[in-house]
């Protein structure tokens, strides 16, 4: 478009001024207009839609888990590691809800038995731990158990090994300090820097009793995936699934049968129903949307994974 400034002969024509930069508010508005869900993300079966509804109801009625202390972290720490947000809160709510049932603090809402039993928990693993909040919350709950409610002294330890990994060394550093601040015995909290659980597959096959993964789930261009800085905490590639899809065979191999339980965060952009199908067909792992809540511009779901058979490599691995 050209702007006509003058009607004199030999008219002066000016090219249009460059458009003003987008004000910050518009930037958020664009973010906001990302559709919460698109039609093709609707569950393809009635059964799955029902499970989603149940998960929403569960999320409404569950107790809100209390966050481990992060008072020692500052703004500058969050330049290097993902700051706990709605996804983190929903994840620890899900873990907390199952622990409440385990400790008989509440009755199971579905009348089913506790999915985790204290005596079955020996080793836990969180990959991509970030600040380590979910693992630290889990460790705290395992230590206090039902006893905190009864006002008794805390047992000194629960003898469980909590492994955490992250590709970002800053995250490992911050998670280790956060565990210390929250009085997790340092011997129980074992961390190292690696990609997913690549270095643990053989030693820990069929040995992880509680598995936690809050993957980078935001759909982004594929070339944003694979950094080891803060971007690694959100950039999920196509459908936000690139990192999770790589982790699926590892999760299947590590999760212990029959008592293991996994918790994985997903958004509807990730097509969680398809994740559930893949995990069941390839590895016999049952995936149920366990808690579901809308958070700003996304529907968050905590998928709960329980193996129905012992791990065997799928033909596709």
């Amino acid at each position: 478009m050209q702007v006509r400034l003058s009607t004199y002969p030999g008219e002066l024509q000016l090219s249009p001024p460059p458009p003003p930069p987008l004000p910050p508010s518009l930037f958020f508005a664009m973010d906001f207009h990302h559709p919460v869900r698109t039609k093709d993300q609707d569950p393809s079966t009635q059964a799955y839609a029902e499970l989603n509804k149940k998960a929403e109801a569960r999320a409404k009625s569950c107790r809100s888990a209390s966050m481990p202390s992060l008072d020692h972290l500052h703004m500058k720490d969050y330049q290097n590691v993902y700051e706990p947000s709605d996804d983190t809160y929903l994840l620890i709510d899900a873990i907390g809800m199952d622990m409440d049932v385990m400790d008989k603090l509440v009755d199971s809402k579905d009348g089913e038995d506790a999915v985790i039993k204290r005596s079955h928990i020996n080793t836990t693993l969180e990959i991509g731990c970030g600040t380590g909040v979910p693992s630290i919350y889990l460790a705290m709950r395992l230590r206090e158990g039902g006893q905190l409610m009864a006002g008794e002294d805390l047992p000194s330890t629960n003898n469980v090994c909590h492994h955490v990994t992250d590709i970002n060394p800053e995250a490992i550093r911050i998670a280790t300090v956060t565990a210390e601040v929250n009085k997790i015995p340092q011997q129980e909290f074992i961390s190292h820097q690696c990609d997913l659980a690549t270095n643990l597959l053989e030693e820990y096959e069929n040995k992880i009793d509680i598995f936690i993964f809050n993957p980078p789930y935001v759909p982004t261009p594929d070339d944003e995936v694979g950094s080891n800085g803060i971007e690694a905490s959100w950039a999920g590639g196509i459908n936000g699934r690139v990192v999770l899809d790589r982790a699926i065979p590892q999760i299947a191999r590590l999760l212990s049968f029959p008592h293991g339980v996994g918790y994985v965060v997903a958004v509807d952009d990730n097509y969680p129903e398809e994740i559930a199908k893949v995990m069941m067909n390839r590895y016999g792992i049952q995936v149920v949307p366990w808690l579901r809540r809308r958070a700003r511009n996304e529907f968050l779901t905590i998928l709960r994974l329980t193996p129905t058979r012992k791990y065997e490599p799928a033909s596709i691995d």
């Binding site: 060394p169 550093r173 820097q193 990609d195």
Partner: peptide, 10 residues
């Protein structure tokens, strides 16, 4: 291994 953190990334 740096600051006690082993880096196993390939």
């Amino acid at each position: 291994v740096k600051d006690c953190i082993p880096n196993m990334i390939l």
